[in-house]
Protein backbone atom coordinates (compact mmCIF):
# COMPACT_ATOMS: atom_id res chain seq x y z
CA UNK A 1 0.00 0.00 0.00
CA UNK A 2 1.42 3.34 -1.05
CA UNK A 3 0.90 6.19 1.40
CA UNK A 4 0.37 9.70 0.08
CA UNK A 5 2.18 12.49 2.03
CA UNK A 6 -1.18 13.57 3.40
CA UNK A 7 -2.04 10.11 4.66
CA UNK A 8 1.46 9.64 6.05
CA UNK A 9 1.11 12.85 8.07
CA UNK A 10 -2.33 11.81 9.31
CA UNK A 11 -1.08 8.40 10.40
CA UNK A 12 2.03 9.81 12.11
CA UNK A 13 -0.18 12.38 13.91
CA UNK A 14 -2.45 9.59 15.13
CA UNK A 15 0.10 6.92 16.11
CA UNK A 16 2.25 9.42 17.97
CA UNK A 17 -0.83 10.62 19.86
CA UNK A 18 -1.96 7.10 20.69
CA UNK A 19 1.44 6.21 22.13
CA UNK A 20 1.64 9.43 24.15
CA UNK A 21 -1.97 9.21 25.39
CA UNK A 22 -1.06 8.26 28.99
CA UNK A 23 1.42 11.15 29.28
CA UNK A 24 -1.08 13.61 27.87
CA UNK A 25 -3.67 12.39 30.40
CA UNK A 26 -1.17 12.89 33.22
CA UNK A 27 -0.21 16.38 32.04
CA UNK A 28 -3.85 17.43 31.58
CA UNK A 29 -5.03 16.13 34.96
CA UNK A 30 -2.00 17.54 36.74
CA UNK A 31 -2.53 20.89 35.02
CA UNK A 32 -6.06 21.01 36.45
CA UNK A 33 -4.72 20.13 39.91
CA UNK A 34 -2.10 22.88 39.71
CA UNK A 35 -4.58 25.42 38.40
CA UNK A 36 -6.98 24.68 41.28
CA UNK A 37 -4.39 23.98 43.98
CA UNK A 38 -6.31 25.66 46.78
CA UNK A 39 -9.54 23.79 46.02
CA UNK A 40 -7.67 20.48 45.85
CA UNK A 41 -5.95 21.16 49.20
CA UNK A 42 -9.28 22.07 50.77
CA UNK A 43 -10.91 18.93 49.39
CA UNK A 44 -8.20 16.61 50.72
CA UNK A 45 -7.84 18.37 54.06
CA UNK A 46 -4.91 19.30 56.23
CA UNK A 47 -2.95 16.10 55.63
CA UNK A 48 -2.79 16.58 51.86
CA UNK A 49 0.75 16.02 50.62
CA UNK A 50 2.16 15.85 54.13
CA UNK A 51 4.94 13.51 55.16
CA UNK A 52 4.37 11.16 58.06
CA UNK A 53 7.00 9.41 60.11
CA UNK A 54 7.29 5.72 59.24
CA UNK A 55 10.50 4.85 61.02
CA UNK A 56 13.61 5.89 62.79
CA UNK A 57 16.84 3.96 63.08
CA UNK A 58 20.47 4.28 63.94
CA UNK A 59 22.92 4.57 61.11
CA UNK A 60 26.58 4.41 61.89
CA UNK A 61 28.78 5.26 58.95
CA UNK A 62 31.90 7.27 58.33
CA UNK A 63 32.37 9.15 55.10
CA UNK A 64 35.61 10.41 53.64
CA UNK A 65 36.20 14.15 53.51
CA UNK A 66 35.60 14.24 49.76
CA UNK A 67 32.32 12.28 49.85
CA UNK A 68 29.66 14.46 48.25
CA UNK A 69 26.05 14.76 49.35
CA UNK A 70 24.71 12.63 46.50
CA UNK A 71 27.11 9.82 47.30
CA UNK A 72 26.02 9.85 50.95
CA UNK A 73 22.38 9.95 49.89
CA UNK A 74 22.79 7.01 47.50
CA UNK A 75 24.49 4.93 50.18
CA UNK A 76 21.78 5.64 52.75
CA UNK A 77 19.00 4.81 50.27
CA UNK A 78 20.73 1.56 49.38
CA UNK A 79 21.02 0.75 53.08
CA UNK A 80 17.26 1.31 53.44
CA UNK A 81 16.39 -0.65 50.30
CA UNK A 82 15.02 2.49 48.68
CA UNK A 83 17.43 2.98 45.78
CA UNK A 84 16.21 5.08 42.88
CA UNK A 85 15.80 8.67 41.72
CA UNK A 86 16.48 11.16 44.50
CA UNK A 87 17.83 14.57 45.34
CA UNK A 88 19.66 15.85 48.40
CA UNK A 89 19.29 19.08 50.35
CA UNK A 90 22.29 20.18 52.36
CA UNK A 91 26.06 19.98 52.22
CA UNK A 92 28.00 16.80 53.03
CA UNK A 93 29.68 18.30 56.10
CA UNK A 94 26.45 19.62 57.63
CA UNK A 95 25.00 17.79 60.65
CA UNK A 96 21.66 17.35 58.87
CA UNK A 97 21.16 16.04 55.34
CA UNK A 98 17.72 15.61 53.76
CA UNK A 99 17.31 12.99 51.05
CA UNK A 100 14.15 13.09 48.96
CA UNK A 101 13.49 9.73 47.33
CA UNK A 102 11.12 10.42 44.53
CA UNK A 103 9.50 7.15 43.38
CA UNK A 104 6.41 7.12 41.18
CA UNK A 105 3.89 5.91 43.73
CA UNK A 106 5.58 6.90 46.99
CA UNK A 107 7.86 9.70 48.05
CA UNK A 108 10.15 9.24 51.03
CA UNK A 109 12.01 11.91 52.94
CA UNK A 110 15.00 10.65 54.87
CA UNK A 111 16.76 12.96 57.27
CA UNK A 112 20.27 11.93 58.21
CA UNK A 113 21.43 13.38 61.55
CA UNK A 114 25.11 12.86 61.11
CA UNK A 115 26.30 13.69 64.61
CA UNK A 116 23.63 11.49 66.18
CA UNK A 117 24.13 8.58 63.73
CA UNK A 118 20.40 8.55 63.20
CA UNK A 119 17.97 8.35 60.27
CA UNK A 120 14.42 9.67 60.31
CA UNK A 121 12.25 8.13 57.60
CA UNK A 122 9.05 9.82 56.50
CA UNK A 123 6.63 8.95 53.71
CA UNK A 124 4.19 11.12 51.83
CA UNK A 125 0.61 9.81 51.88
CA UNK A 126 -0.50 8.68 48.43
CA UNK A 127 -3.20 10.62 46.65
CA UNK A 128 -4.11 10.93 42.99
CA UNK A 129 -3.25 14.67 42.73
CA UNK A 130 0.16 14.14 44.32
CA UNK A 131 0.78 11.20 41.99
CA UNK A 132 -0.07 13.08 38.78
CA UNK A 133 1.89 16.14 39.89
CA UNK A 134 4.96 14.06 40.70
CA UNK A 135 4.75 12.43 37.26
CA UNK A 136 4.24 15.87 35.65
CA UNK A 137 7.30 17.38 37.34
CA UNK A 138 9.59 14.48 36.45
CA UNK A 139 12.00 15.47 33.70
CA UNK A 140 15.64 15.74 32.79
CA UNK A 141 18.59 13.48 32.15
CA UNK A 142 20.52 14.23 35.33
CA UNK A 143 19.47 11.17 37.35
CA UNK A 144 21.84 8.23 36.75
CA UNK A 145 19.07 5.62 36.46
CA UNK A 146 17.96 3.97 33.21
CA UNK A 147 14.22 4.33 33.86
CA UNK A 148 14.67 8.06 34.65
CA UNK A 149 16.59 8.53 31.40
CA UNK A 150 13.91 6.66 29.42
CA UNK A 151 11.30 8.87 31.07
CA UNK A 152 13.26 11.93 29.89
CA UNK A 153 13.39 10.46 26.36
CA UNK A 154 9.58 10.11 26.44
CA UNK A 155 9.31 13.73 27.62
CA UNK A 156 11.39 14.72 24.59
CA UNK A 157 9.14 12.56 22.44
CA UNK A 158 6.14 14.44 23.87
CA UNK A 159 7.84 17.70 22.87
CA UNK A 160 8.39 16.40 19.33
CA UNK A 161 4.81 15.12 19.35
CA UNK A 162 3.32 18.48 20.34
CA UNK A 163 5.33 20.37 17.74
CA UNK A 164 4.42 17.80 15.12
CA UNK A 165 0.73 18.00 16.07
CA UNK A 166 0.88 21.77 15.59
CA UNK A 167 2.46 21.51 12.14
CA UNK A 168 0.51 18.48 10.95
CA UNK A 169 -2.68 19.97 12.42
CA UNK A 170 -2.22 23.10 10.34
CA UNK A 171 -1.52 20.95 7.28
CA UNK A 172 -4.67 18.88 7.81
CA UNK A 173 -6.77 21.97 8.48
CA UNK A 174 -5.66 23.49 5.17
CA UNK A 175 -6.63 20.33 3.33
CA UNK A 176 -10.25 20.63 4.49
CA UNK A 177 -11.61 23.48 2.40
CA UNK A 178 -14.88 24.05 4.33
CA UNK A 179 -12.87 24.34 7.55
CA UNK A 180 -10.42 26.96 6.25
CA UNK A 181 -12.34 30.08 7.20
CA UNK A 182 -13.59 29.05 10.66
CA UNK A 183 -10.20 27.50 11.40
CA UNK A 184 -8.39 30.68 10.35
CA UNK A 185 -10.68 32.82 12.49
CA UNK A 186 -10.15 30.61 15.52
CA UNK A 187 -6.39 30.56 14.98
CA UNK A 188 -6.37 34.35 14.71
CA UNK A 189 -8.46 34.61 17.87
CA UNK A 190 -6.17 32.24 19.77
CA UNK A 191 -3.04 33.97 18.51
CA UNK A 192 -4.47 37.38 19.40
CA UNK A 193 -5.38 36.29 22.90
CA UNK A 194 -1.96 34.73 23.38
CA UNK A 195 -0.27 37.92 22.19
CA UNK A 196 -2.43 40.08 24.46
CA UNK A 197 -1.68 37.98 27.54
CA UNK A 198 2.01 37.75 26.69
CA UNK A 199 2.25 41.53 26.39
CA UNK A 200 0.29 42.37 29.51
CA UNK A 201 1.09 39.71 32.10
Amino acid sequence: MKLSPSKLIRRAHMYLALFLTPWMLIYALSGLVLNHGQAVRTFYGAKFGQFEKVGEQSYTAVFSADADARMIGAQILEHLGLSGTFNVQGQPNQPRLVINRNAAFAAHRITYFRNENRLLIEQQAFSAPVFVNRAHFRHGYEQPFLSAKIWAVVVDLAVVGMLFWVLSGVWMWWEIKPARLPGALLALGGGGLFGLLLATL
Binding site: M162, V166, A179, G183, F194
Partner: peptide, 12 residues
Protein backbone atom coordinates in the same frame (compact mmCIF):
# COMPACT_ATOMS: atom_id res chain seq x y z
CA UNK B 1 -9.46 20.48 14.80
CA UNK B 2 -10.99 23.76 15.96
CA UNK B 3 -9.85 23.40 19.56
CA UNK B 4 -6.40 22.80 18.14
CA UNK B 5 -6.57 25.93 16.00
CA UNK B 6 -7.45 28.10 19.02
CA UNK B 7 -4.75 26.62 21.21
CA UNK B 8 -1.93 26.42 18.64
CA UNK B 9 0.27 29.01 20.44
CA UNK B 10 -0.16 27.31 23.81
CA UNK B 11 0.70 23.87 22.41
CA UNK B 12 3.85 25.32 20.84
Amino acid sequence: LYLGMILLPWVA
